[in-house]
Simulated scan of single mutants.
Amino acid sequence: MTHSSTNHQRALIQRSTNDVHSLLLRSSSNIKPAREVTLRVKFIRLGEVITLHEKFYAEVVIEARWLYDPTAASWNPNLYIKNALGDVKQEIISELVDHLDEPVKPDSATCDTIYVWEIRKVVGTFWEKLELNSFPADVQQLSLQIVASCPTDECILVENRFQPSIVNREAFLAQQEWFLYEHIETRSTITTEDFSFRPIRQSTYLVTCYVARRPGYFYWNVYLLIFLITFIALTVYGVAPDLPQSRLQITCTLLLTSIMFRWSVSRLLPPVSYLTLLDKYTLVSLVFISLNSIWHSIIGYLVRRLNISKSIDNYMFGLFTIFFLLYHILMIISLCRALHHRNIMLENDRKYASKLAGMFETFAQGHHAVQRFKDRQNSSRTSLFV
Rank of each mutant, 00 (worst) to 15 (best):
V158E: 04
Q163L: 11
V60G: 02
L85W: 08
K121T: 15
A72C: 12
E118H: 02
T152D: 10
N133F: 13
N160I: 01
Q90P: 01
W117F: 12
F126I: 07
N133K: 13
A73K: 11
V139P: 00
I146N: 00
A148K: 01
Q90S: 12
E59Q: 15
L173N: 10
C150P: 00
V123H: 04
K89D: 07
I166Q: 06
R65E: 07
V139G: 10
S149G: 08
Q140M: 14
F126D: 01
Y68N: 07
A58E: 02
F56L: 14
Y115K: 03
P164L: 09
K55T: 13
S74L: 11
E102M: 12
D87E: 11
F126K: 01
D112F: 09
F172N: 05
F162S: 12
V61I: 14
I93M: 09
V104S: 07
L79H: 04
S94L: 00
W75D: 15
Y115M: 05
A171D: 06
W127G: 02
V158Y: 03
Y80L: 06
L85Q: 10
W127R: 15
D138R: 06
E131F: 11
E118A: 03
E102D: 13
A64F: 01
E63S: 14
V123T: 14
F56A: 15
L157W: 06
D98F: 01
K105H: 13
P106A: 12
N83S: 09
P103L: 10
L100V: 06
Q145M: 13
N160A: 05
V104L: 10
Y57W: 09
I81N: 05
N78Q: 11
A148P: 03
P151A: 06
N168M: 08
A137N: 07
D112P: 10
W117V: 01
I119W: 00
I146D: 00
L100Q: 13
V122G: 01
K55F: 08
V60R: 00
F56Y: 15
E159W: 05
K105N: 14
V147D: 02
S108K: 09
Q90H: 07
K89A: 09
V139T: 15
A72E: 14
I114C: 12
L142S: 10
L142Y: 08
T110H: 15
E63M: 03
I92C: 05
N160E: 10
T71V: 12
K121D: 06
E154M: 08
V158F: 05
I114G: 03
V167S: 09
I93L: 08
P77H: 06
A137R: 03
Q163D: 08
A64M: 04
V122K: 00
P103W: 08
L130P: 00
I92M: 04
E63G: 01
V97G: 05
F162L: 12
C111T: 14
L144R: 01
K82A: 11
D107W: 07
L79Q: 02
K129Q: 15
D98N: 13
V116N: 01
K55C: 15
V88E: 03
L67M: 14
L130K: 15
F135T: 00
L157M: 09
L173H: 10
S134I: 03
I62M: 07
L100R: 09
F135C: 02
P103I: 08
A64C: 11
